[in-house]
């Protein structure tokens, strides 16, 4: 494929692939430089706008259970949803390295469209750029999103109180394990599919059942450990979790046992951590379990007044383990 000016063959092809997949313009409307959203429609759904953006780079682009396109939609949808917002519209900007296989691009574009449909959001505006070989690594995607926060909700990382119950909707580490397995170096097939999924439906059900929910976070980079530590610090509470209560698939555990990884630190793309007041914990857990993405939901611990800022895990051997945020990649510690 030729490289160069605005009219190059690749450029046209890319426009074609993505614009058709995004369906950015309404039937019969001319294409403008911006998406236009009706304020009245938004205001009917809540009283605050939520707005977020994220860039996605992942190696490899496609993996068991997902690809970079699905990731880009889910990531932004979930960032809106964990704030209590109903996602409304996304933008999608794509940077493509010249020479990308067109078939791959088509699959990823289709995945974006499919995931957006599944999440009930529209990709209302977008952009594509093709850059010279080496100027980026295959494909980068940036998505931004707006959503509406329903009136009366107030979720915040600093809102956990002693006695609150910590819930998660599903097992840890599926995404991290799937990605590592998909990298060529290991040459093993994925033990599980990525959990990459839009969580807005699940979170909506949770908030209906437990309107007093204090906070929700998705446990992406840094894993569950990072979320628990952020919340312990911001809320000035201790967090005590039970290792035996944390759901982890046996395949992921086996994979971690091979690689020497700790599932608490593996990234997830479909795991939400919710903190709810104790009196709403049962209802919240039931609501999670009733949703297809929460079948394995569990109450994994509680917020405590003791040891603010610290996350501690009770081990099955009757000991305690400090679960800390790591400064960088996990380093050995045994001397």
């Amino acid at each position: 494929l030729a490289h160069g000016g605005g009219g190059s063959a690749m450029r046209d092809l890319v426009e074609d692939v993505f614009v058709s997949a995004f369906a950015v313009h309404e039937e019969g409307q001319p294409l403008e430089d911006q998406a236009r959203l009706s304020l009245a429609e938004l205001m009917a759904r809540g009283d605050r706008l939520a707005f977020t953006t994220d860039s996605f780079v992942v190696d490899p682009l496609e993996f068991a259970g997902g690809d970079i396109g699905k990731l880009a939609v889910c990531g932004t949808v979930n960032d809106l949803a964990v704030g209590g917002a109903v996602p409304v519209a996304l933008s999608c900007a794509v940077v493509i390295e010249e020479g990308m296989a067109v078939a791959t691009l088509r699959r990823i574009a289709a995945s974006i469209a499919r995931t957006a449909r599944e999440a009930g959001v529209r990709v209302v505006t977008g952009d594509t750029k093709v850059v010279a070989r080496g100027a980026c690594d295959k494909l980068f995607i940036t998505t931004s999103g707006v959503g509406v926060i329903r009136t009366g909700l107030d979720l915040g990382i600093a809102r956990a109180r002693p006695g609150d119950v910590v819930l998660i909707n599903g097992p840890l580490g599926d995404h991290g394990a799937a990605i590592m397995a998909a990298r060529g170096e290991l040459a093993v097939s994925a033990p599980v599919a990525s959990d990459c999924a839009p969580l807005n439906g699940l979170i909506g059900a949770l908030l209906d059942a437990a309107p007093g929910t204090r906070l929700i976070r998705d446990a992406t980079r840094g894993g569950l450990a990072a979320v628990l530590n952020e919340m312990a610090e911001a809320s000035n509470i201790g967090v005590r979790v039970a290792e035996s209560a944390i759901p982890i698939r046996p395949e992921v555990r086996g994979f971690c046992d091979l690689l020497g990884l700790d599932p608490l630190y593996l990234g997830n793309e479909g795991v939400a951590v919710a903190v709810v007041p104790p009196e709403q914990a049962d209802a919240a857990l039931a609501a999670l379990r009733a949703h297809p993405l929460g079948v394995l939901a569990a109450a994994i611990g509680t917020a405590t007044a003791e040891r603010p800022g610290r996350v501690v895990m009770d081990t099955p051997f009757g000991g305690t383990r400090i679960v800390d945020m790591l400064v960088g990649d996990p380093l050995p510690r045994i001397c």
Binding site: R183, E185, L186, L259, L261, L331, P332
Partner: peptide, 18 residues
Amino acid sequence: PAEGVRRMIEGGVNAPPT
């Protein structure tokens, strides 16, 4: 899991040199 460990070493996956 000897085969897996061989791949970790040869692929440099969580196998830092020491």
